[in-house]
Structures are given as C-alpha cells and as structure tokens.
Amino acid sequence: MSNDLQFSLDGVSVCFEKGETIMQAAQRAGIYLPHLCFHPDFSAHGSCRVCIVHLQGKTVAACTQPAESNQVVQSNTPELQKARLRLIQLLFAEGNHYCPTCETSGNCQLQALAYDLGMTHYHYDPFMPERQTDGSHPDLFIDRDRCIQCDLCGRASAEYDGKAIYTLSGRGQNTQLVFRSPSGLLGDTNAGADDRAAHICPVGCILPKTGNYQEPIGTRLYDHHPIHDIGNLRKEERGGSS
C-alpha cells in the first residue's frame, strides 16, 4: 500500500482514492463533516457551504474540493463551527421555518445541525418571503417555505429516477424550487411518491400527503442522537448514513 494518497483532517490521517473529494474521503474514514446539500449517491452541488473547511490558508467546500496528498485540512475548529452556525441561521432567516408544527421536526437535518451547532436564535432578521405551496400531486405536498435550495431533489430526480422533474428557477433571493410540467405544478408531472427525489429532502419541503404526524415526538431520528454521531439520515435510511 502506498502512503501517497492521504491527507490530514483535524490531525487525523485520511486515505483517499484518486478523484475523491475531501468529503468523500472523510465519509469513508467515518469522519463526519457537517453538510446539507451533499449526498454520496449524487453529484456534488457545493451550494449550502456548510461543509467549508480550512485548507492551507483557504476556505473551501469539502464536497467539491478534490483531495490531494499531504493536504492539511481543518474542520472542527471554533471558527468554522461558528461560521457554520451563521450559515444555518441565514438559512433559517431566509425561509419560513416553524419547527413546532413541521412534520419533519426531529427528522430534519437543518434543525439537527442547528441543535448541534448550538443555535438558540435566528441572529438575522427573518426575511419572511412569500412562497407558494403546491398541493396538486395526489401523494406529495410541497411546502416551499422550508426549501433551502439544495437541489438534492433535482439531482436525485435526474441522476437516480431518470425523470428530471425537480429543478431551481429564478435568481438571487427569488430562487425557487420548480417542476418540469407545462403548468409548473407537481401534479402535472410523472413524479411518484416512491421516487428517490420524493424522499431525499433534508428538510420538510417535499412531504407525503398521508401518514404524517404518526411518529411521536421524542422517537424521531435526532431526538436522542446528534447529527454528528448518526449522520445526515432520512427516515427511510435508519441504519445507514450519508
């Protein structure tokens, strides 16, 4: 075994394979780097910026930065954790997130990271955007108030389901989740409730219409386990992690 393909992450030596990013290598090594828009099954996006790490004087996104030999990477520093907290607070401020009434509460990765990073308040004034819901689909409900524009549904739909239904539109703060149908409604697409895209949302933007609120508060994914221990899990994925 050659020792060439390894770098240092928070002082721990991490092996990588050629072509891997820092995030991919860290995951294989079982090291958790906070993230939202990354998922190992899909191409990297690099938009949430929660996975920023220090790399020899620069700050880069671990999910898009190629791993290289002898890199010195820092992730778990007070400075970076504070930056991540602020990014999470920005995401809370720019959407309309009401955890107590949200079906995803306890299973939500945004909320879990907020707890993990010690978020106690918004810090920034809420933007209170007006965003449309979409209840046109027989089995799925879309609550754009909770969307964090991570495009995971878009990537899952295009890269896994082979349907390319979900995508992002608009510009700047008016960026929004849209669906590829002439009417723009999800109900007019061939989206299925069993599609990977329908289950990939890290927050509570894409939800099934039935079977909600049955899992009692207190028994949900992150109720007893911090996200840095169990990873970015979905309800369906208990037992594995991403």
């Binding site: 690099g46 910026r49 720019e94 933007f127 964090i148 700047g172």
Partner: peptide, 15 residues
Amino acid sequence: ESCGFCTPCRAGTVA
C-alpha cells in the same frame, strides 16, 4: 445581482 446559488451570497447579501 446575486445568482442565488450559495447560502452566504443569496441570503448574506439580503442580511
């Protein structure tokens, strides 16, 4: 003029 792709720019410019 923010394109809206990443959190710090999309939400940061507004904040």
